[in-house]
């Protein structure tokens, strides 16, 4: 099925020209992997006048680890992340999340930056970047700007990106102490299914915890109450039971075609329990290998 909307296609070779194009046109869309955009174009939910394909901007294709900070460029696909040694060794949670994204044919095209720009509530990268307290780095003709991930997601498919801005990369600070992580994602089947609930967890050596849920509110969210309840404590079964009681205060799932709100609420508790246990086990050097599914 071809796209009915008539648009002009540009493939700039410099960032400056790309930014020119998007700032001088009210109705411009960025194209990277296209796995969301092309669907939206076909369905008529995206109706741009110009499409700016950024795949020639080679500078945006890099994964880099320097000054204790991980850079994930706007053209880095989930396959690139899975094949990166730095990711596997230093950010195994990023690796684990990338592995759950759709299937190979999508991961070969889809980018993490594209994922957070689409900003659908069930996005896989959302909870992950929340627990790492990542920043989204954007550029426009006025200069550069760094947006903390907590201020990035504004609602279903809404982000803090302004007209004329291009996301160049995501930056993730390397945790200043040892961590164990876990990502648990619930879908109906493996492959192109969207998450019904997802949760990312990081357990730190000093008994601090970061927990973020996805698909249970319009945006991914940090479970602040649970975090402050758990912080400083060593995890045990009793604590986990108490923490589970706090989940209904944190999330507000809805019923849709994929699951009911009651099911999502129930599963959020189950997934939290398995996830926190695994994160702590991994912190202590055992537990399931990264990439093994817990549901």
């Amino acid at each position: 099925m071809s796209i009915l909307q008539d648009f002009d296609y540009f493939k700039p070779t410099t960032i400056e020209f790309a930014i020119d194009l998007i700032s001088n046109n009210k109705n411009a869309t960025i194209l990277a992997g296209g796995t969301d955009l092309i669907v939206n174009l076909k369905e008529g939910t995206a109706t741009p006048e110009i499409v700016v394909d950024i795949k020639s901007l080679k500078d945006l294709k890099k994964i880099e680890f320097k000054d204790n900070c991980l850079i994930i460029g706007a053209l880095v696909t989930f396959t690139d992340l899975l094949e990166s040694v730095v990711i596997k060794e230093k950010f195994p949670l990023v690796w684990e999340v990338s592995k759950t994204v759709a299937s190979v044919g999508i991961r070969n095209r889809a980018t993490m930056v594209g994922n957070i720009c689409s900003a659908v509530p069930c996005l896989d990268s959302g909870p992950l970047l929340c627990v790492y307290e990542a920043d989204v780095n954007v550029r426009s003709s006025k200069g550069k700007r760094k947006i903390p991930i907590k201020d990035w997601f504004l609602g279903n498919k809404k982000t803090a990106l302004k007209h004329g801005e291009l996301v160049t990369h995501i930056s993730i600070p390397f945790p200043n102490q040892k961590t164990g992580g876990c990502y648990v994602r619930l879908g109906r089947y493996c492959g192109e299914d969207l998450a019904q609930v997802n949760v990312a967890l990081l357990a730190f050596a000093n008994n601090a915890y970061r927990i973020a849920f996805g698909a249970v509110a319009p945006t991914p969210l940090r479970a602040n109450k649970i975090e402050s309840f758990l912080n400083g404590k060593k995890i045990n079964d009793h604590l986990i039971e108490q923490a589970k009681e706090l989940i209904p205060d944190e999330i507000s799932p809805i019923t849709d075609i994929r699951a009911t709100k009651e099911y999502r609420m129930h599963m959020a508790k189950v997934m939290f329990e398995r996830g926190i246990k695994t994160a702590v086990e991994r912190l202590n050097g055992d537990g399931l290998e990264y990439g093994e599914s817990l549901v």
């Binding site: 194209l31 296209g34 092309i38 669907v39 299937s103 044919g105 999508i106 070969n108 095209r109 192109e192």
Partner: peptide, 21 residues
Amino acid sequence: GDCGSCTVMLDGKTVKSCLVL
């Protein structure tokens, strides 16, 4: 993009050709 029946290789990697301009 959901079924894979349109799969082709682009520079050696599989992609869903229904999602490529």
